[in-house]
C-alpha cells in the first residue's frame, strides 16, 4: 500500500453520528405510523365523491376548474418563494467567498510578517 492509500484510509475513517442518534432511532420506532394526508384519506374513503357526486356536471366542472386555478396559483407562489430562497443562498455563498478570500489575504500577510 502506498502513501496515498494510507492517507485515504485515515481520511475516510469511520465517524460517529450525534450522541443522541441511537435514542432518536429508538424514538422513531415507537412513534405512531405516518397517517396519510387528510385530503388523500378523504378521497380514498369516497368522501369527495359522496359530497360532490350529486352536483350537476357543469357545477362539478366549475369546481374542478376553480380548484385547478387555486393549485396553479399556489404552485406559482411556491416557485417564487424557491426563487427568493435561491437568491438568498447565492448571497450567503458570496459572503462566505468574500470572507474566505479576506482571511486568505490576512494569512498571507501574517506569514510574511513572521518571515
Amino acid at each position: 500500500m502506498d502513501w496515498l492509500e494510507q492517507e485515504l484510509r485515515e481520511a475516510l475513517n469511520r465517524k460517529d453520528p450525534a450522541p443522541d442518534f441511537a435514542e432518536r432511532v429508538r424514538g422513531s420506532l415507537h412513534a405512531p405510523k405516518h397517517r396519510p394526508a387528510h385530503a388523500v384519506e378523504a378521497f380514498r374513503s369516497g368522501l369527495v365523491l359522496r359530497t360532490f357526486g350529486h352536483w350537476p356536471v357543469a357545477a362539478r366542472s366549475w369546481l374542478a376548474t376553480a380548484a385547478a386555478i387555486v393549485i396553479t396559483a399556489g404552485a406559482g407562489g411556491m416557485g417564487y418563494r424557491q426563487h427568493r430562497g435561491e437568491v438568498a443562498r447565492q448571497q450567503v455563498m458570496q459572503a462566505f467567498r468574500i470572507a474566505g478570500s479576506s482571511l486568505n489575504h490576512i494569512q498571507t500577510q501574517v506569514r510574511e510578517v513572521r518571515r
Binding site: L12, N13, R14, K15, D16, P17, F21, A22, V25
Partner: peptide, 10 residues
C-alpha cells in the same frame, strides 16, 4: 445497533 451505527453513518 451501536456496533454498526458508525459504519452506517460514515
Amino acid at each position: 445497533m451501536r456496533a454498526h451505527q458508525s459504519m452506517v453513518f460514515s
